[in-house]
Structures are given as structure tokens and as C-alpha cells.
């Protein structure tokens, strides 16, 4: 794979340099027949039976390369996971980048390689792409925009309205690893143990479906973390979630970053974790299956679904004292604080 030393505006102008970038960098990385036609639109083979699922996502991250991933892996895994959370098997992706003039070609190459590897691991193909450039100072190095296409096999379906009182809420691993990794980097911390959880989740969750576990709802707690995702799902389900503070799995280095910067793990982003709502009676079996997969070893039951009630917030946390406190949506950004 050969990347230019620096990205010039002409790399996004559609001329010779654009073509070189495509032929030397993108094509060898994403190699597949649908992409190699380089037509205006990729023609896909017929989809397997089921309901098609379509998603799109924009990706920005500072720093663009972090422990456990980069903008490339993040964009592919994020898109794959959006499909997986809808119960779909992910199949096809598009991958477009917006590059800032002067970008280090090595950084682009790293992100392309990251996207390639993530796509390979998730078993999806990148069938179309695009490159645009913006003048220096008009963008932050590299942005990626994706679309994802998958199919929900017949008989499968998840929906927040399926969530029922008595359901258990599971998380498939420690929370906040991605968010803490990013924050630690931005605030001068070093760690060999802190690694983003960035990963595609189809491999982890497919065995649950295959085992016939009746999953009611699935979400990946990305931006805004478990707190935000639960609030959104609670609103759609019309029910109340009670989470257990002591049960929330948090890795020691993530906890350390939180304590140092005054952050709350409930609000930190994950990029390779799922929240699963399912009947309580199925929880133990599901946990056993999840824990049998390398990505799910840290799976835990973190809460339960109950009827909503006046005087209660949609999402509440049982604290160390046994009392319940409301867990709200994040107001504004989660900023490091000293006070």
C-alpha cells in the first residue's frame, strides 16, 4: 500500500492525483469485485432473504489514532454495529473520507489499513467510496462518512417496544474503555493497559440468535455512554430501567481516568459493547454464551426493567447506600473537572 507523503487539495479534485490515491491505496486495501468496477454506483449481488437494514454515520475522533484503533476501525466497526443493533447481519459498507490539505499520508494509510482490517474481521465488504479534500484549517485532518447495508434474517427482530417489565439488562463487557482512552490521551496520561474497546459485534451476538435467545432490544452505548443509551431506550419503551451501580463493570484503568478527570463511567462512550434487553429467565444462559466469546468475557447483568411510576425517573441507579438516584441524559459535553 502506497500513500502520498502529504495530501494536496488536488487529491480530492477528481484528476490524476485522485486516481492515484484510489488505485494505490484504496483498491488494494478494500479489494473486492464490486468496488473494483469503479462505476458511479456499485452493483451488488442479490441480498439474502429478510428485511434490508440501512444506516449511515459520520466519524470524527481526536486523536485519529488511539490505543486499540483509529478512525478507520472506528468508522467501520461503528457502522457494522449500527446494523447489528437492528438485528441485521451486516453485508456492505461505503467509506468516504474528507481530508484536510497537508494531512500526513501515513495517517491516511493507517486509517485505510484500519478500515480494511475491521471490514475483514467483521466479514463485510466496502463496495463504494469517495475522497474529498478541504483547504488547510477547514477540517481536522481526517473525517470519515459511511453507509452500511445489512439484512435482518426472517424471524428476527428487535425493538425497544418489545422491552417488558421483568427484563434483565446485560452489558457485554467493561464500559467506557473507548471514552477513557480518548480522554486520557487528550489530558496527558499514558497507559499500556488502557485500550479502546472498538470492535465489531456481529461475531459476539450472532451466537445468541443462533441459540434462540429471545432478545427484546439491542443498543451500543456509544456517545453519551450507558446513561444516554438507556434514557433513549426507556423513553421509547415507556418503561423504567433500574441499574445497579455496583454491578457496572469498569476496568481499573478506566476507573482511574474517571477519578482523575472527574468523569462518570455511566457517560463514557463504548465502541465495542452492546446492551441487551431480554427476559430475566434467559439472562444466565445468555451471559454464559456471551462470556464464551473473546469480546464478551466481561459480560454482566447491570439492571432490570420495571413499570414506570410517578416520582421516578425513566432510568435510575441503585447507589451504594441502596437508595435510587435518577440517571439523566448528559447536559452538554462531559468535561474534565477539578472541582
Amino acid at each position: 500500500m502506497k500513500a502520498p507523503q502529504r495530501i494536496l487539495l488536488a487529491h480530492g479534485a477528481g484528476g490524476r492525483l485522485t486516481r492515484e490515491l484510489v488505485e494505490r491505496l484504496f483498491l488494494p486495501a478494500f479489494a473486492n469485485p464490486e468496488l473494483e468496477d469503479l462505476d458511479d454506483a456499485a452493483l451488488l449481488p442479490e441480498l439474502p432473504p429478510g428485511r434490508p437494514a440501512l444506516t449511515t454515520d459520520g466519524h470524527v475522533v481526536d486523536p485519529p489514532v488511539f490505543a486499540g484503533g483509529d478512525l478507520g476501525t472506528l468508522s467501520v466497526n461503528g457502522t457494522v454495529n449500527d446494523l447489528v443493533m437492528a438485528g441485521a447481519r451486516p453485508l456492505w459498507l461505503t467509506w468516504a473520507v474528507i481530508l484536510e490539505e497537508g494531512l500526513d499520508g501515513e495517517l491516511l494509510a493507517t486509517c485505510v489499513e484500519g478500515a480494511r482490517r475491521a471490514a475483514e474481521e467483521a466479514g463485510v465488504r466496502i463496495a463504494a467510496g469517495d475522497t474529498k479534500t478541504v483547504p488547510r484549517g477547514k477540517g481536522d485532518r481526517i473525517f470519515a462518512v459511511t453507509a452500511g447495508l445489512g439484512v435482518v434474517p426472517p424471524g428476527r427482530g428487535v425493538n425497544d417496544r418489545n422491552i417488558a417489565p421483568g427484563d434483565a439488562i446485560l452489558v457485554t463487557g467493561t464500559v467506557g474503555d473507548h471514552g477513557a482512552t480518548i480522554m486520557a490521551h487528550r489530558h496527558g496520561m499514558e497507559s499500556t493497559e488502557l485500550v479502546s474497546d472498538c470492535a465489531a459485534l456481529n461475531g459476539l451476538l450472532e451466537p445468541l440468535w443462533e441459540a434462540g435467545v429471545p432478545i427484546h432490544a439491542l443498543h451500543d452505548p456509544t456517545r453519551g455512554g450507558v446513561a444516554t443509551t438507556c434514557n433513549e431506550a426507556a423513553a421509547r419503551s415507556g418503561l423504567r430501567f433500574v441499574l445497579d451501580q455496583q454491578a457496572l463493570p469498569v476496568a481499573p484503568p478506566v476507573r482511574a481516568v474517571c477519578e482523575l478527570l472527574g468523569l462518570d463511567p455511566f457517560y463514557l462512550a463504548c465502541e465495542g459493547r452492546a446492551l441487551v434487553w431480554l427476559p430475566e429467565a434467559e439472562a444466565d444462559r445468555a451471559l454464559e454464551i456471551l462470556r464464551g466469546h473473546p469480546l464478551g468475557r466481561g459480560s454482566a447483568r447491570i439492571g432490570e426493567v420495571v413499570d414506570s411510576a410517578p416520582g421516578h425517573a425513566p432510568v435510575e441507579v441503585r447507589t451504594v447506600s441502596g437508595a435510587l438516584r435518577p440517571l439523566d441524559l448528559l447536559s452538554g459535553m462531559d468535561l474534565p473537572r477539578i472541582c
Binding site: 497507559s191 481499573p252 482523575l260
Partner: peptide, 26 residues
């Protein structure tokens, strides 16, 4: 007021030191 947490002092000179906790250092 004010967040402060105990960390282990790994090394130091006159002005600066490196502290660590659970695999995080600064």
C-alpha cells in the same frame, strides 16, 4: 472542594514526577 486522588509516585526530580494508578500514569 476539589477532586484529588491518591496515586503512587514512581520517580521524580526537583520539579516533576511521574505518578501512576491502575495502569495510568501522568
Amino acid at each position: 472542594m476539589c477532586l484529588a486522588i491518591p496515586m503512587k509516585l514512581e520517580r521524580r526530580d526537583e520539579f516533576e514526577g511521574v505518578v501512576s494508578l491502575d495502569g495510568i500514569s501522568r
